[in-house]
Amino acid sequence: MSGDPFITHRRLLFTVAYEMLGSAADAEDVVQEAWLKWTNVDQADVRDPRAFLVRIVTRKALDQLRVLSRRREEYVGPWLPEPLLTTPDVAEDVELADSLSTAVLLVLETLTPTQRAVFVLHEVFDVGYDELAKAVGKSPTAVRQIAHRAREQVAARRPRGIISPADTRKALIALQWAIATGDLHDLVDILAPDVVVLGDGGGIKQALPRPVSGADKVARLFAAGLAGWGAGMTAELANVNGGPALIIWLDGELDSVVSMRIEDGLVSGIYTVRNPEKLSRMMQEAAVSR
């Protein structure tokens, strides 16, 4: 492979860091630190640059994840991952798109830092147990046990069945129609009985202070919202985190990004990010890959 291995693998490194941290800004910091480390090693002695670079990023992301865990305990209101504007081809890699989705990233938040690293690296990026052991500082046997527990936890919490971009797009179009016309009928018809809505304003923008659950409550929430939004709000479909999402504009300014979790054809989760610090990259496509 010609060229600087760091440049060759940079998209992969960013994706690993983002899936571990749920923050593009923090992922970029980790990748930058990895580059500084890379420039200070004797690269001629590195037999497998990809594995070496992934190991560096993993260790630095683990350190950052422990800091973020403490910071998120003080976060105002619900915390949601930072949305990424992605290219249409990302959706073609079903496993990558699934792992980038807001629904799955929220599931990963329930894991310990080491469990998250092991799950992401093994299940998404096909890193072997021996290499994983080096990355997280555990024995291969311990890593296998960690991987098993992480898989069980994720399987119990992740969306049921195959995620259908078509079903997601249909639900988002129903919300888009509601915003444009005030007609909630199509959206209410596809709400799961136990649907949950989360809003992330980060204490900067007004958002839901806590989750709202149940189809009736969510329908009333949207009815009240539509009544107050007025004519200045528009919504456009976009590729976000490897799947369909809505970018919401208010009086010509970027207001929020809405993504959904679909299970058995019904909307079981609606996630709205309004925190402007998490929307600063939404006009720039993120370079992600496996």
Rank of each mutant, 00 (worst) to 15 (best):
L68P: 03
L100M: 09
K138H: 12
R151F: 12
P81R: 04
I173E: 10
V104P: 00
S164F: 10
Q64F: 00
A166V: 09
T58L: 07
E82H: 02
V76Q: 12
A180C: 09
P165E: 05
V120Y: 03
A133T: 09
L175G: 04
I179R: 00
L132G: 13
A97V: 05
S99V: 05
V107R: 07
V124D: 04
P88A: 12
S99L: 05
A155N: 15
P81K: 05
T86Q: 06
L80H: 00
I56T: 08
V90I: 11
L85I: 05
E152I: 15
A135N: 10
L100F: 06
A174Q: 01
T181E: 02
R151K: 15
G137M: 13
L105Q: 08
L65H: 04
T86E: 02
A147T: 14
R144T: 14
V118L: 11
G137I: 09
I179G: 00
E95T: 12
A155F: 13
D167I: 12
S101G: 07
F125E: 10
R149L: 15
R158F: 12
A135S: 11
S101W: 02
P83F: 03
E74G: 08
D98H: 11
Y129D: 11
A103N: 07
D63Q: 01
A155E: 15
V57D: 01
A142I: 15
A174W: 01
V127P: 00
R169I: 09
H122S: 04
Y75I: 12
I146F: 12
I173C: 03
R149E: 15
L96C: 09
Q153C: 06
P159I: 13
G128N: 13
G161D: 12
V143F: 08
S69P: 07
S139T: 15
S164H: 10
R59W: 00
T114C: 08
E95Q: 12
T86Y: 02
A117C: 03
A142K: 15
K170W: 06
Q64M: 02
V154L: 06
F125W: 09
P78E: 08
E131A: 10
D93A: 08
V67E: 07
I162L: 14
A135H: 08
S139Q: 08
T141K: 15
G77I: 03
Q153F: 08
L80C: 03
R59V: 00
K170R: 13
L172V: 06
S164D: 14
I56F: 06
V67K: 12
D130K: 09
V136L: 10
G161L: 08
R66Y: 10
A155T: 15
L175D: 02
V120E: 03
T114M: 09
E95G: 09
K138V: 14
D93G: 05
A166Q: 13
L80M: 04
E92P: 01
L62P: 01
T168E: 13
